[in-house]
Amino acid sequence: MKIIPFVLLLLLSATAFSQTNPPAKNTDPATSAWALRQAQFKAAEGKNYYELTNADSIFQAAGIARPHGACMLSFWFAGCAPCVAEFPELANLTKKYAAENFTLLSLTFENNPVIQQFQEKYNLSFIPKHISEAACNKLAFGGGYPKNIILDASGNIVLISMGGGIDPKGSAMHFAAEIIPAIDKALQQSQDIKATYK
Rank of each mutant, 00 (worst) to 15 (best):
K129T: 12
E120A: 13
Q19G: 00
E86F: 07
E133H: 11
L124W: 14
S18C: 07
I3M: 12
P67H: 09
A134K: 14
R37D: 03
N48T: 02
L107I: 07
Q117S: 14
C83V: 11
A85K: 10
A172R: 02
Y49A: 09
I160F: 11
Q189T: 08
L8S: 10
D192Y: 01
T53D: 09
F59N: 06
L105R: 09
G164N: 10
L11Y: 00
N148E: 04
D167S: 14
N48F: 06
I131M: 08
T94K: 08
E45Y: 05
A78N: 09
A39W: 03
V7H: 08
V84W: 12
F141I: 07
A30H: 08
F109E: 14
Y97S: 00
Q119C: 14
Q191E: 15
F126K: 12
I180E: 03
A61S: 08
K129V: 12
G46C: 13
S171A: 10
Q119T: 10
K194C: 02
L187S: 08
I183W: 07
P168D: 02
N111Y: 10
F109Y: 15
Q119Y: 05
N148K: 11
N92Q: 12
S171D: 00
F87K: 07
L90W: 04
A43N: 08
P181A: 05
T31A: 11
A153C: 12
I150Y: 01
